[in-house]
Amino acid sequence: MTKRGHCKGVDSKLSWTQVETGSAITWKYPSCILTGDNSVAEFYSVAVTNNYQQADTGTKMIHIGKNTRSTIVSKGISAGKSQNSYRGLVRVSEKADNARNYSQCDSLLLGSECGAHTFPYMDIHNETAIVEHEATTSKISEDQLFYCNQRGISTEDAVGLIVNGYAKEVINKLPMEFAVEAQKLLAISLEGSVG
């Protein structure tokens, strides 16, 4: 599935927020084309994979207008034997003076049989562009879970707490009602993934 948004006019703004828990195999790259000068685009994503799911998701930010800015925040959570990839392109064309991009890709692993991958593509044709990419990978440790257990929190609830804390940055971008749904969805998607 691929959707594209087009920032045509001057000072236009576009924001994608996705919570991806879906199908067996997902390829999904909601994209933004920043044609209008001074336009701004954002992409916020949480992708959860469990069992044998494969998700390969991310975005394209295509900077064409001048002074265009984009932000990418992607949080991947892998459990079971799943594979979770972030794949994203940031393109800055020749005329896109002073384009600015910041990308942050975090991966959280549950268990030892899942995988997380990050493929940031950058295609920069203008010297004035400033493009940043940050990536982290972390794991929920046995010690963290046991600490929660000792305080009376079951392993399943502990995973929910940690995952929701981790995805907070993206979930906070969602409208209230939807954020509550998303939190529950995360917990359901990861049910039975630990212990």
């Binding site: 600490y147 000792q150 009376g152 707490l161 804390g165 981790y166």
Partner: peptide, 30 residues
Amino acid sequence: EDRSHAGLFLSFQYPVEIPGVSMVNFMRAA
């Protein structure tokens, strides 16, 4: 967790860090 509910508490020698989970949420769950 049931040992904890029954009233047993351990003050850990090396308390672990849990990034992203605020003390408020953590204690509220507990």
